[in-house]
Nucleic acid binder design. Structure first.
Lengths: 218, 218
DNA sequence: ACTTATTTTTAGGACGAACCTAGATATACT
DNA sequence: AGTATATCTAGGTTCGTCCTAAAAATAAGT
């Protein structure tokens, strides 16, 4: 990697780090971009160049957040349904107390829920995630472009992820510790994913790799 | 009603009307609040007083939009499930080509889908609507405050409304006429609400008014 | 190594939404 | 009619976002 790219990474890192520090200290809405620029020792415009929206200074995780469920479905095992894959992956993330499902620490969680701007941006993340999931489901089930079935399924699955994410955030803000939250979430995941089983248990099941059947199920 | 209230209504009406006219002519993002103020012959601040957010100048329907599904469930018939009530009410709205489910005319639909700000605000409407629905479902099923079941059910039901709304908007923008869209939507509603039947057909059924049973179902 | 080309950063400013305040104006009350 | 109350207005501030031209840093070519 060239020197130019290296410096870009460093600059981005510094800006993001200083921004997060200030946001945690004083709250997202009480820190201006100009202050972030001063703290990171760059021009105001440089902050904007790296992070076109102020919200992205705090939520620098769009891509992995959006791609994860779609990827989980794409990589599900033979004989596994989309629902089962997502439930399995979610439980695994709970066990890891993965930040991507909401385990972000009390200060960070507080920063988010106290800022309408960040909450709104997060809603967009959830939306993008649902769209990515819908695209994969449509692909995996060979659905007609204007069949809404994959969109409905994606909406249901993404909604569960969203609700569990919000639950994690709020319990974190309320001061529960991660192990406590993990236990509760495991239960809630069972309830939420379980409630989709009657409608989705047979949806988007990856065919066993031994001899592909003539017609795909559903 | 006093003269003061009358004038307030007129002022609000004038502002909203002039704003909508300008937005349809030139697009939401290309009209400033100052221009709306000039067109409505009021001070800039008066526009802001009536419509704290610019988006609400175009989307002056928050309350009915948010309350409708919750109200439908609250007023469902004896023996009717929340799902059945919402499906029924939706089909009725399709037959009426009700603006509240997306029949807003090509210009208006185009204004919305072309503006990221309006799309984002609409997302918030959907979210508020889901929350209102969740509250009613929790109430109607006597759910524990931290049982997520009503939230999951509300998310699934609200998602169907949201998807069908988006579908209506996009088909309207694409130039399909309302009768054509009505037919398609009726079919899509069958698919979407139908896909929830396995999980929700027995959820939140209003008890028959003849002799209340000892324990409520679910 | 020096020059040229490309990319990135910078400074300075423009624009518009959101908010504030004090004073003017209009309506309601007695 | 006179006082109280609600509403509107004018003028301003702040901040996020975007624009531009010039300066600085790096890469590429000779």
């Amino acid at each position: 990697m060239g020197l130019r790219e290296l410096k870009k990474r460093q600059t981005r890192e510094t800006i993001s780090h200083q921004a997060t520090r200030l946001f945690l200290e004083r709250g997202f809405d009480h820190v201006t971009i100009a202050e972030v620029a001063v703290a990171a020792q760059v021009a105001k415009m440089t902050v904007t160049n790296y992070f076109p929206r102020k919200e992205d200074l705090a939520l620098d995780m769009h891509d992995v957040f959006v791609r994860l469920p779609a990827q989980t479905v794409r990589e599900r095992g033979p004989g596994e349904s989309a629902l089962a894959a997502l439930h399995r992956a979610y439980l695994s993330a709970v066990a890891d107390q993965d930040p991507v499902i909401g385990f972000s620490g009390p200060e960070f969680a507080r920063m988010i829920v106290e800022s309408p701007a960040l909450t709104a941006r997060l809603r967009e993340f959830h939306d993008d995630r649902e769209k990515a999931l819908a695209a994969v489901l449509a692909e995996e089930t060979d659905a007609d472009p204007d069949d809404i079935t994959p969109r409905v399924a994606a909406a249901q699955l993404a909604a569960v992820h969203r609700l569990l994410f919000e639950e994690t955030l709020h319990r974190t803000v309320q001061g529960h510790d991660n192990d406590d939250i993990s236990r509760t979430l495991t239960e809630h995941a069972r309830t939420a994913f379980g409630s989709l089983e009657p409608s989705l248990a047979d949806y988007a099941i990856r065919e066993e790799h031994t001899s592909p059947p003539p017609g795909s199920p559903m």
